[in-house]
Nucleic acid binder design. Structure first.
Length: 741
RNA sequence: GCCCCCGUAGUUCAGAGGAUAGAACGCCGGCCUUCUAAGCCGGAUGUCGCAGGUUCGAAUCCUGCCGGGGGUACCA
C-alpha cells in the first residue's frame, strides 16, 4: 500500500531531473533493502548509462569490444555517483517539504542510489490505521470483471487419498482463495475420477474377495483404497516377482554369485524339476530375464522366491560390514542394461527385502494371475453393458469414496462450488469425438479416433497425436476432458479456467486445449494449466502398487498426536479444556500439512519426510500460528485498543521493519494472484511472523503492556495490525489462526 | 532422439536484472521470579552445476554442455 508514496517520490525525482536538464521518465523505484531503513530508492545507473552513451558516442567508435566495456563501465559508475549526488542534494535542498507536510523526510546518495526516506510517523500511521480499520478486508483487491474457475483436487474414487493429493488440494484451494481475495469472482471446481480401469479393478477385488466382510461406515473410504491396491498387486503378481528376480540377476553381484548354491538347495529340498532348475540357474547367472512360459512346473518361480529373502538378508549384513559391492563389468549380452553401473547397497537391499516380504507372503497367487486378468476383462465388459448389479455396486462404493473425500476437505477447510465427475461427461464427450470425426478433424488410426494435431497446424513434432477413444470404443481421459472443458465455459460463463494438475500431464493438457481450438472453441485460449511437481518419499516415488505411500489420514493422525503432546506439555495448569486442546491440535496439524505443501515452489518436488513434518519448529505453520496466538494474548491482556490518534515517534528498527512488512501485504496478494503462486503468501506470512517475533522478543528494549505512553499505544496498535495481517494471510492459505496455543 | 522442470550453505528450501545472496533444520554457546521459550540472541559453513554470451550491472535473461526428475497415441 505504499504505491502512493512511491508515486510521490517519483514525482519529486522527476522534478529534479527536469531542473537538471533531463527528460521526465518512468522510474523504477524499489524499497531500500536494508533492515531499519524505511523508504524507496532509485538506481541511477540506467539513466547514467544513457547519458554516457550519448556523451561519448564519438570516443567509443572504433574501440574493441573489451576496451569499450571497460571504458563504459568506468564512466557509467562515475556518472551515476555524480547523478545520485546531484539528485539527493537538490531534493534535500528545498524540494522535500515544499508542499507542506510531505511523507518523504529526506534523501541520501549512496553508491549511485538515491534513497528517499519516509517520514516514519506519517506513513506508519497510515499503514497501521488502514490495516486495523479494513480488518479482514485488508489486502483485498478491487472487484474485477473477470470470472475465474479453478479446478483442483480431482481425486479418483475407489483409491486412497494420500499426501500427494494433499499437495494438489492445498495448492488449488489456496490459489482460489487468492484469486478471490485479489478481486476475481472465483468458482472452485472438483472433478471426481469416478470411472475407469482403477474402479473396475477395485470393484473386482471387492466382489471376489471381500464381499462378505463387514465394513464400518468410518472405514469405507479407506477400505476401498486398500482393495484397489490389493487388486493391482494381485494382477501384477507375476510381473512383480519376475521383476524382482530380474533386477537381482541384472545388478546384484552377490546374489548372482550365490545362485548356484541356492538352486541346488531348492532342488534338494523342494524337488523342483531339473529342467526348471537348470533354466533358472542359467538365466540368472547370465543376467537374463526369466520367461515364465519356458518353465515346466507352475510353481518353480515361487519356490525360488522363497530362497531370495534369506539370501538378501545375508547380503545386507555383508554390505553393512564391507561397504557397497559393485556389479561385474558388463558383458556383451548385458552391456546395454543400465546406467549408472549398479551397486549392492544397504539402501537397495533393504528396499528389496521389503518387496520380497510382500511377494513371498502370497505365493499361491502365482498360478491364479491369468484367470484374474480374464475376470477383469469380463468385469469391464459388464460395466460397458451397464450390468445392473455392478452399476449398483459402483454407485454405492462411489459414494463411500466421495463421503470420505468430503470429510477430508472439511477437515482441511476446503470447499467446492461445483463438483464434476468423469461419469457425467463421458457420453457428451463421446459425442464431441464423433463430431470431430465428422468434421475431419479427427481421423481413424489403428481402429481408434485420433487427432494428429501437428498435421492440422502444419507443425512438426510439437503437439503430436492424441487418441480420443480406445479401439474397442470405450472412453479415455481425453474423451471426458473435451466435454469438461466445453461445459466449464458454456455452463458457467467464466473468462478463465485454471487446471491445477500434476506437471506430468502438462503435455497432455496442451493437446486437449489445442484440439478444442481446432474444434472451433474460442475459449480454448483461456485455458491454463497450473502444474506442480509431485510429492515423493525419502525412499523414492510414491506408488500405490508397491504400497509406498503415506496416506493423508495417517500423516494427519501422527501430526495431531504430536501437536497434542506439545500442547499438554505447555499447558499443564488446566487453563485449557481437553476439548480446546484437541481443537488446537487439529488446527496445528491441518496448518502444518497445508503449509508444508504451500511453502515450496510448484516446480520443486517435495520429499515428504514424516520426521520433518512432525518437527513443529522453524519454517512451519506452528511458528506463524504461534506468533498469531501471542499477538492475541497481548491484545487480550491490554483490553481496549487506543481510541484516538496514536503518535508514532522514535521508532526502533525492529518496529520499522515490521510496519514495512505489513504495508507490503496488498502487493503480495496481487503478485500471488497474477503469478498463480500461493508460495508468495506462504513466504510472506512467515517473514511477517519472524519480524513480529524479533519485535516481541526484546522485552527490555520494547516492552508493550508495561511501556509508557505514547509507546504503549503505538506498540499495541502495531500488534493489532500485525495480528490482523497474519490472520488475513493465513486465511489465504486456509491455515487456521488459533488465538491460543 | 525430441519436449518440459530442477541444480544456490552439511540438509531442506527462498531469492521482481541492482547495494553486503537469505531463511529454516542440524551443530556449538547463551536467554524463562516481567507481555506464551512451538520463541529470541551469538558462532561456523557458499567456485549460486560448468562454459560462453547479452547488459553499465547476471543466482536471475540467452546459447551450449554436465547431472537429476518427468513426458513423448488406446493410464490418468
Amino acid at each position: 500500500m505504499l504505491q502512493h508514496y512511491e508515486d510521490r517520490a517519483s514525482d519529486l525525482i522527476n522534478g529534479v531531473l527536469e531542473e537538471l536538464g533531463y527528460e521526465r521518465q518512468e522510474l523504477q523505484l524499489r524499497p531500500i533493502p536494508f533492515s531499519g531503513s524505511w523508504g524507496t530508492s532509485l538506481a541511477s545507473f540506467p539513466l547514467a548509462s544513457k547519458i554516457v552513451a550519448a556523451e561519448h558516442a564519438e570516443e567509443f567508435e572504433g574501440l574493441s569490444k573489451k576496451e569499450l566495456k571497460k571504458r563504459q563501465s568506468g564512466l557509467v559508475r562515475e556518472k551515476s555517483l555524480e547523478l545520485a549526488d546531484a539528485i539527493a542534494e537538490r531534493l534535500n535542498g528545498g524540494v522535500i517539504g515544499q508542499n507542506g507536510a510531505s511523507a518523504i523526510s529526506r534523501a541520501e546518495s549512496v553508491n549511485g542510489y538515491v534513497n528517499l526516506f519516509f517520514d516514519t510517523s506519517t506513513v506508519a500511521t497510515d499503514v497501521l490505521r488502514t490495516a486495523i480499520d479494513q480488518g479482514a478486508d485488508y489486502g483485498r483487491g478491487t472487484q474485477r470483471a473477470d470470472k475465474v474457475m479453478v479446478e483442483f483436487s480431482q481425486p479418483n474414487t475407489h483409491k486412497a487419498f494420500h499426501i500427494g493429493h494433499t499437495r494438489n488440494a492445498a495448492l488449488g484451494n489456496a490459489l482460489a482463495n487468492i484469486t478471490e481475495f485479489a478481486g476475481f469472482e472465483t468458482i472452485r471446481a472438483n472433478y471426481w475420477g469416478d470411472i475407469g480401469m482403477h474402479v473396475i479393478q477395485c470393484l473386482w477385488c471387492y466382489q471376489s474377495f471381500h464381499k462378505d466382510r463387514r465394513i464400518t461406515r468410518k472405514l469405507r473410504g479407506r477400505r476401498l483404497g486398500e482393495y484397489y491396491t490389493e487388486a493391482v498387486q494381485r494382477l501384477n503378481y507375476r510381473k512383480d516377482v519376475l521383476g524382482l528376480l530380474h533386477e537381482l540377476a541384472e545388478d546384484d553381484a552377490l546374489f548372482v554369485e550365490k545362485i548356484d548354491a541356492i538352486v541346488t538347495e531348492m532342488y534338494r529340498e523342494d524337488g523342483v524339476c531339473g529342467e526348471d532348475v537348470a533354466y533358472l540357474l542359467g538365466q540368472i547367472a547370465n543376467h537374463r530375464e526369466i520367461d515364465e512360459d519356458k518353465l515346466f512346473e507352475p510353481m518353480s518361480v515361487p519356490m525360488l522366491l522363497k530362497y531370495v529373502g534369506p539370501q538378501l538378508k545375508e547380503e545386507l549384513a555383508f554390505v553393512r560390514e564391507h561397504g557397497p559391492q559393485e556389479a561385474p563389468p558388463p558383458t556383451s549380452r548385458t552391456a546395454n542394461v543400465r546406467y549408472p553401473p549398479p551397486v549392492v547397497t544397504i539402501e537397495n537391499t533393504t528396499e528389496r527385502i521389503a518387496r520380497w516380504k510382500r511377494l513371498n507372503a502370497t505365493p499361491e497367487w502365482w498360478p491364479e494371475v491369468p484367470e484374474w486378468q480374464q475376470q477383469i476383462k469380463d468385469t469391464f465388459q459388464a460395466w460397458e453393458r451397464k450390468d445392473e448389479e455392478l452399476v449398483a455396486l459402483w454407485e454405492e462404493t462411489r459414494q463411500w469414496s466421495i463421503d470420505e473425500f468430503h470429510r477430508i476437505y472439511d477437515e482441511l477447510g476446503i470447499r467446492f462450488d461445483v463438483e464434476f465427475s468423469e461419469s457425467e461427461v463421458e457420453e457428451e464427450g463421446r459425442q464431441i469425438v464423433y463430431d470431430l470425426v465428422d468434421r475431419g478433424i479427427a481421423e481413424m488410426s489403428d481402429g481408434m479416433p485420433v487427432v494428429d494435431i501437428d498435421k492440422a497446424l502444419g507443425l512438426e513434432d510439437k503437439y503430436r497425436t492424441l487418441p480420443l477413444l480406445r479401439s474397442d470404443g470405450t472412453t479415455l481421459y481425453s474423451t471426458k476432458d473435451l466435454e469438461l472443458t466445453r461445459r466449464k465455459f458454456e455452463d458457467f460463463d467464466i473468462d478463465r479456467s485454471i487446471w491445477v494438475i500434476d506437471n506430468r500431464q502438462g503435455f497432455y493438457l496442451q493437446q486437449i486445449f489445442k484440439i478444442m481450438e481446432l474444434w472451433g472453441f474460442d475459449q480454448a485460449e483461456k485455458c491454463f494449466h497450473l502444474g506442480y511437481e509431485f510429492v515423493t518419499l525419502p525412499e523414492g516415488m510414491m506408488s500405490s502398487r508397491h504400497g509406498i505411500t503415506v496416506l493423508y489420514e495417517d500423516a494427519m493422525k501422527a501430526m495431531r498426536k504430536r501437536a497434542l503432546e506439545i500442547i499438554e506439555e505447555k499447558n499443564p495448569d488446566g487453563r485449557l479444556s481437553d476439548e480446546k486442546k484437541e481443537d488446537i491440535a487439529g488446527q496445528v496439524a491441518v496448518g502444518s500439512i497445508l503449509y508444508l505443501m504451500l511453502s515450496r515452489d510448484n516446480n520443486t518436488q517435495i520429499a515428504f519426510d514424516m520426521e520433518e513434518a512432525l518437527s513443529f519448529q522453524g519454517h512451519a505453520a506452528p511458528y506463524i500460528q504461534y506468533a498469531h496466538a501471542r499477538a492475541c494474548r497481548i491484545l487480550e491482556r491490554a483490553g481496549e485498543l487506543p481510541d484516538g490518534p496514536v503518535e508514532f515517534v522514535d521508532l526502533q528498527p525492529e518496529e520499522i521493519d515490521l510496519i514495512q512488512k505489513i504495508a507490503e501485504f496488498p502487493e503480495e496478494v496481487t503478485q500471488a494472484a497474477t503469478e498463480y503462486r500461493p508460495l508468495v503468501i506462504a513466504d510472506y506470512v512467515f517473514e511477517l511472523a519472524r519480524l513480529f517475533n524479533d519485535f516481541y522478543a526484546d522485552f527490555d528494549a520494547r516492552p508493550i503492556l508495561n511501556a509508557d505512553e505514547p509507546a504503549r499505544s503505538m506498540r499495541l496498535t502495531l500488534v493489532a495490525a500485525t495480528r490482523q495481517t497474519l490472520e488475513n494471510g493465513l486465511a489465504l492459505l486456509s491455515v487456521p489462526a488459533p488465538t491460543v496455543m
